[in-house]
Every structure is written in structure tokens, then in C-alpha cells.
């Protein structure tokens, strides 16, 4: 790994954000809207639901964590799409940067985009709804790690699709997370799902992450084995995502799509 090249590619995306105030606004706008929406829903449920009684912030914390996953994945996809939209794709792929360095650069830069969007929203939630994700304590770091790995994995799978099918795959980029959300049991316990779907859901890290989050907030119980399980599952998916990305890259070279990738 050449960190100077990883830094160079990261810098390209940092300049892109710095050069455009509307872009920064766009990054902050959606998470903030989400926080407001789920903040009010959360407040309503807290007051009217037996399940969520005295557990102020469970839904809002779930919304924040889900948004973190969503932003991580979308950030990864967006940075890749930016290269296609700007017709810079060929320049990037003929530069002496290895594929693993491109993946590393996008992975590391995605965290920056994610945090630009999410930190203001998280800070707003504290005075407005009295909810802080920091109340999850140390386990929050591990839960975020599992979410980030899985978010990047989804990004890798979508970008693999972009390499395979070209820019027409773009719509899938936006839809990918909504597809998995029902199985992620973000706002409800896994028991709500039919048994068959429960089996599938347990194969995803999301269920373990959000079950753990609820357990910490509602019962004050931290189960590190469960957290480790979620990180491990995310790690396995991440490795699979990298493999799929490489397969798509070599497939794109075979089909000659790298040279004509554009708007």
C-alpha cells in the first residue's frame, strides 16, 4: 500500500467537497432531516408505547446508527460515481495506483463524508430531543465499526455493479440500503419477522448491531460476544465485497467498459 497515493485520491474528494458549499449543505441536510423526523416519531412512541416507555431515544439512536450505515455506503458509491460523472474514470484507472489503494482511499474518505453529514445532526439531537448516541458508551465504537464495514461492503457491491453494468446501475446505488432495511430490524425486534426471514436476517450484521443497541439502551446490558459477532459478520461481508469488486474490475477490463465509462 502506498499511502501517498491513497492520500492523493482522498485529497481529490476533499477538494471536491471544499470547492462546493451546496455539496457540504447536501451532506448535512439529509441526516438533519432524518434526525428531526425520527426525533418527533421517537418522542411520540416514548409517550404512547409501552415497549418504548422510559427508553427515550431508542428509536432516534437507531435512526442515527442506520443513517451512519446509509451515509457510509452512499459516500463510497458517490465518490465512485463522481469519477464516472466527471468522465475522469479512464484517467483514474491509468494512473499508477493499485486497485487495493483505490478501495482503501474510498473507504477512508467515505468516513469523512459520513461524519460531515452526521456530526451536526447528532449534535442537534442532544439539545432538541435530549438524546445522545454517546450514551451507548464504549460499545458505540464497536457498533460503528461493524456498521461502517457493512456500509462500505454495500458500497463495494454497488460499485462492482457500476463496473459490470455501467452508469445505468446508478439507481441500484440509491436503492441498495432500502432493500436490506426491513431485514435489518432497525426499529423493531427480530421476533417481528416471519421465521424464514429471521434466518436470513441473522446472517446480516444489522440485526446483531441493532439488537445490541436496544439491549444497552433498554436493559443496560452489554453483550460483547454479540458485538464481536456483528463485527465478524461485517468483516466477512467486507472481504466478500472486495473479492466481488476485483472480479467486476477484471470483468470490466475483459468487456472493455473501463475505456468508455462515462455519462
Amino acid at each position: 500500500m502506498n499511502f501517498r497515493k491513497i492520500y492523493a485520491l482522498g485529497l481529490r474528494h476533499l477538494y471536491l467537497i471544499m470547492n462546493s458549499f451546496p455539496r457540504v449543505l447536501d451532506l448535512i441536510y439529509w441526516p438533519t432531516v432524518q434526525i428531526f423526523l425520527w426525533g418527533f416519531i421517537s418522542k411520540f412512541f416514548t409517550l404512547n408505547s409501552e415497549y418504548y416507555s422510559n427508553t427515550v431515544g431508542v428509536i432516534l439512536t437507531a435512526a442515527i446508527l442506520y443513517d451512519f450505515l446509509f451515509r457510509a455506503s452512499i459516500s463510497f458509491n458517490m465518490m465512485f460515481l463522481e469519477e464516472i460523472w466527471s468522465r475522469n474514470f479512464t484517467n483514474l484507472f491509468i494512473a499508477p495506483i493499485r486497485i487495493r489503494e483505490i478501495i482503501a482511499a474510498l473507504t477512508l474518505t467515505a468516513i469523512l463524508r459520513t461524519l460531515i453529514g452526521l456530526v451536526p445532526a447528532v449534535l442537534i439531537a442532544i439539545p432538541l430531543f435530549g438524546v445522545s448516541v454517546l450514551s451507548l458508551g464504549i460499545p458505540l465504537i464497536f457498533l460503528l465499526l461493524a456498521l461502517y464495514l457493512f456500509g462500505i461492503t454495500l458500497g463495494l457491491l454497488v460499485t462492482s455493479g457500476l463496473l459490470r453494468y455501467g452508469p445505468s446501475f446508478e439507481n441500484i446505488a440509491w436503492a441498495s440500503l432500502f432493500f436490506l432495511a426491513p431485514l435489518g430490524c432497525i426499529y423493531y425486534p427480530i421476533e417481528i419477522l416471519p421465521e424464514t426471514l429471521q434466518i436470513i436476517a441473522k446472517g446480516l450484521p444489522l440485526v446483531h448491531i441493532f439488537e445490541e443497541m436496544r439491549s444497552i439502551l433498554m436493559n443496560n446490558v452489554v453483550n460483547y460476544a454479540n458485538i464481536l459477532k456483528s463485527i465478524s459478520i461485517s468483516g466477512i461481508y467486507f472481504v466478500l465485497g472486495v473479492i466481488v469488486f476485483y472480479i467486476s474490475y477484471f470483468g470490466a477490463k475483459k468487456r472493455g467498459t473501463l475505456i468508455n465509462m462515462g455519462e
Binding site: 492523493a8 485529497l11 481529490r12 477538494y15 471536491l16 463522481e82 468522465r87 475522469n88 484517467n91 495506483i97
Partner: peptide, 18 residues
């Protein structure tokens, strides 16, 4: 093309670094 939203010097800097 080179990234349209980046300035000329930023583009040259990025590629020089790459």
C-alpha cells in the same frame, strides 16, 4: 476529462501525487 469541479491546479496536484 479531468474532474470538472476541481480547479486546474488542484487537478494537476492530485495527478502529480498519484
Amino acid at each position: 476529462e479531468l474532474p470538472k469541479k476541481l480547479t486546474v491546479i488542484q487537478n494537476l496536484e492530485i495527478y502529480g501525487r498519484l
